[in-house]
Design a protein around this nucleic acid. Structure first.
Lengths: 341, 341
DNA sequence: TTGTAGGCGTTATCAG
DNA sequence: CTGATAACGCCTACAA
């Protein structure tokens, strides 16, 4: 590390004291415009950059944000991460990405430890379970924002889309197309999004006076794997009276369903309508293009960081519950119900 | 931020001086075993965690490493990032991910500024152009590792796969299947990987005494977009004498090629063989499964960080040029050449 | 409006 | 083997 210029060098060059330099550069207190001018000129010429360790030590902050993320390579999460990183960089924060791999491995002790060890100024969680009540204790002591997934019925700041409404809209659209036997492929995890998408599915059925049928509910693996989507589809399509449409709680699952259907000799959308959720990139990389619900991942990430920042600086009236708009996107995997002969 | 316990508290609890506590906890200098015992016990009970800002200030380091990445949502990069982040966390470094979006926007001034502003201890680049010679100046002043892409003919530490050999193996495999007219879809960017994959393609042709044919070389967009892969394929397949096989420098391009072929009434692999590169997740999410070259992205990320660390701590004999093994994976998009009737 | 000086929590040097 | 103490660079009372 080459020798760095410090505030003292700037002070000497400008012919003022370090206090004045600090005041000018941090825009605090009154300094004569002409003095300001001198200081800025000196700082510019010397290319002065404040030493962040010293500043952080003095101000008792770390400028580090902890991000708890389960899985980078999932395009959903990587988009959210991109949003968080872009904003945090602009705000002057470093990000410490903690790969949790499995959301069930998290607990209060571990998270507390992470905070203490890194002296993080705040944390964003991407995949907390809906019954992780212990998070409330953490949120009481440290700035925290839950992104996408959050703990149900606890007043911890969170941001997401309205999964229940989105699912309902999606399924209602299928009903409007004439489908009455509609299956769902959900996931055997403890995420609130899965639960709410299930609720939305049931809402739509109820509104259309379609009786709930347990045999039409299939569970894929906790991590939404392609293979488990195929497996779930096989169960549904082997039913004596199979569904004419399947609502999936994630795009990858939907792709698995389509693959399984193809293998069973069913053409999507003619023999089976399929809808996904999230609208990740590759939903339009193969025909038929997937009908799905678009979720603004990148913006979810951006807003999370902004919310967290508001909390850190204790901005009065900072929002604690934000829902971003979603959109049902009808493409090629859904069609009018054609009564089988 | 709750009040934190500091080294002084530990010293008082253990009945020793702060110097001794520091020595014990950092394992430097000789301290009586029984004194050590007392100190460790006190530190444990008080759950002491050193203040990293103070330590960094004192030791003149930042424990931050900069990552220059072009694009998170590309699964290739997100896997590399996962590897880097996992290792850096274990080594006690925070990562500052700088989203460059476009590799051509980078230059010496910008990168120098990033280093000075963040006082980063080192940097990993994921997508430098092969002619970014200015990087040599940077590498002379700061620890730096180039991952995946690197500047040609400059002695800056880098890690990647042997793209030239991998491409040659892949194309030779096509030749062994009887193909003689083999096209390539490469990318109009300035990455060394693209150049080397092109070289490998030519190597294979030359070895088989197949004359180079400029009309069989098509260029997709710089960011390997699906759409540009389709476009490139259309050019190739509209030729008076179209290729019977196409080697693509990325998986997404290959998928685009397959899509375009389908639209033109060509069945893969019967009417056309296609190979990709990288082996990202979704190459096995649709039939036909893609024949491709697997690249160990996650390990590339891990090793980059390890190499960078060796450089930061000035480990003697640290490696400066590493190639990780690749593997041609034959799946369903390639087949024996069947002479058209 | 500006300057002086103390202290943030560590590590490392120098005595003892 | 251990303790006292001087930096590291910055911010901010408090004084002038």
């Amino acid at each position: 590390m080459p020798r760095m210029v410090k505030i003292e060098d700037v002070a000497r060059a400008a012919g003022v004291s370090v206090a004045t330099v600090s005041r000018v550069l941090n825009e605090q207190g009154h300094v004569l415009p002409e003095t300001q001018e001198k200081v800025r000129k000196a700082a510019d010429e010397l290319r002065y950059q404040p030493n962040l360790s010293a500043r952080n030590l003095r101000k008792n902050e770390s400028r580090i944000i902890l991000i708890l993320a389960p899985n980078f390579s999932n395009p959903y999460y990587s988009n959210v991460l991109a949003g968080i990183c872009d904003v945090s960089r602009n705000l002057g924060y470093s990000t410490l990405i903690y790969n949790t791999y499995d959301s069930n491995a998290l607990d209060q002790t571990l998270v507390t430890h992470l905070f203490q060890k890194n002296r993080a100024d705040g944390m964003i969680t991407l995949a907390i379970n809906r019954d992780d009540r212990w998070l409330t204790q953490i949120a009481g002591k440290y700035p925290l924002v839950q992104c996408s997934e959050y703990v149900e019925d606890e007043p911890i700041p969170h941001i997401s889309v309205d999964n229940r409404s989105a699912a309902k809209e999606s399924v209602s659209m299928l009903i409007a197309q004439g489908h009455r036997r509609i299956g769902i492929v959900t996931s055997a995890n403890r995420y609130l999004s899965s639960a709410n998408r299930m609720r939305g599915y049931l809402d739509a059925l109820e509104e259309a006076d379609i009786a709930r049928d347990e045999s039409l509910i299939a569970y894929a693996s906790a991590d939404y794997s392609f293979a488990s989507g195929k497996q779930a589809a096989r169960e549904l399509l082997s039913l004596p009276e199979p569904p004419s449409a399947i609502f999936c709680v994630s795009d990858i699952l939907a792709l698995g369903v389509i693959a399984a259907a193809g293998k069973m000799g069913l053409q999507v959308p003619w023999d089976l309508s399929v809808t996904g959720f999230d609208d990740v990139d590759y939903t339009t990389m193969f025909h038929p293009y997937l009908t799905t619900v678009s979720v603004p991942c990148y913006d979810l990430g951006r807003r999370s960081m902004q919310l967290l920042y508001d909390q850190i600086v204790q901005k009065p009236g900072a929002e604690r519950e934000v829902y971003l708009p979603h959109k049902v996107i009808v493409r090629e995997t859904t069609a009018q119900y054609a009564k089988q002969q």
